[in-house]
Design a protein around this nucleic acid. Sequence first.
DNA 1: CAGGTTTTAGACTCACGGTCGAAAACTAGC
DNA 2: GCTAGTTTTCGACCGTGAGTCTAAAACCTG
Lengths: 205, 205
Amino acid sequence: MLQVLLWERAKEPFAGCWSLPGGYLAPREKLEESIRRHLAAKVDVRELSHLEQLETLSDPDRHPDEWQLVTAYLGLVPTDVDPAVPADTAWHALETLPTMAFDHERIALAGRERLRAKLSYTNLGFALAPATFTMAELRDLYAAALGHDVSATNLKRVLLRRGVLEPIGDHRPPGPSGGRPAELYRFRTRSIAITDQFAVLRPPA
Amino acid sequence: MLQVLLWERAKEPFAGCWSLPGGYLAPREKLEESIRRHLAAKVDVRELSHLEQLETLSDPDRHPDEWQLVTAYLGLVPTDVDPAVPADTAWHALETLPTMAFDHERIALAGRERLRAKLSYTNLGFALAPATFTMAELRDLYAAALGHDVSATNLKRVLLRRGVLEPIGDHRPPGPSGGRPAELYRFRTRSIAITDQFAVLRPPA
DNA sequence: CAGGTTTTAGACTCACGGTCGAAAACTAGC
DNA sequence: GCTAGTTTTCGACCGTGAGTCTAAAACCTG
């Protein structure tokens, strides 16, 4: 299940509504640094497994009081990290978002769409997966992110063929209900890499 | 041949270097409006066939004097428009860019990459093509944008299968060297539409 | 050892696009 | 008007990659 970190606004505007983490840019500060700074001030997130820019919004009506520019980012952490969060902050399932401040719901959904698209043609799964995992775990992770069932057979073949995944050589013993031991895998590289094969109208051989 | 509109800077910094069109954002102005405003002030571009945001850059070192944020956009016009440009402004081939100011060369090349990628999985060709065209013309256009030869046979089959193109029903008489008359086509819609078929790990049937 | 469970592997099929060659439709020159 | 050359169009072939299904493998429990 995909979750997004939100904090509940105490002050107007949008008091009581939920907001994406963020804050103002300091002078001469880079956008990515600002993101990490504001995030670290809120929660104990050692580091994001992936961070990419979504879009800069400039609509003067997106804030009721003042005209402000916002650059939205998509930040990901693996499923196995669960940082401590303050009282006004919580993880929310992306399927059941609460009433959100400003245009933050649109931004959150845009982030999900970006994630879904990039799962198809990049190795972005690394940003959600723990260091090692079984194909069943990865299948569930992809299913949650994509919003539909995923075939473990197909997932394995696709990601192995692309050289995205590699077997660790070890196995995980089955659970109490039995079953064949599951082979353990890892992502070959844990930084973004696109799969070129998707270009249609390829250069001639 | 892909071309980009540049103007030559008269003042420091980067006097004599070439720069992408643009300018400062007015208060309460939307980014897209600002783009169109600054562009209209320079050249007689009635309207862009496509305009999309690339990235917002915040590196404090990208401008020698002051820290400024820049949001880069990709704007496209069809091949058959050739607006009048002032003396300090000219079209430059993307393959032979002159010495450019700031990080504008990186931005221009990023725009080209975005265009190339989207030609593969969207109908973005509409933004470069005239209202009607032959397959040979469209093949040359795609070849120029993609940087490699394109098969007219394949191009036609792919774009027709996706429902991106439709025949106009008319023909263009051959040139002085003869040849079969070419069928005329047009894009079914002249606004961006992605081809969903590219999602790998599709939902089960 | 039998039955249940989970994972893995192989085979089948289909859709899409890259390639090639031939046919169609025209111009120009003899 | 006939032939040669040119450009466009059409059809056929084929390889690849992915979706699907079924069986086999490897484990648990009783």
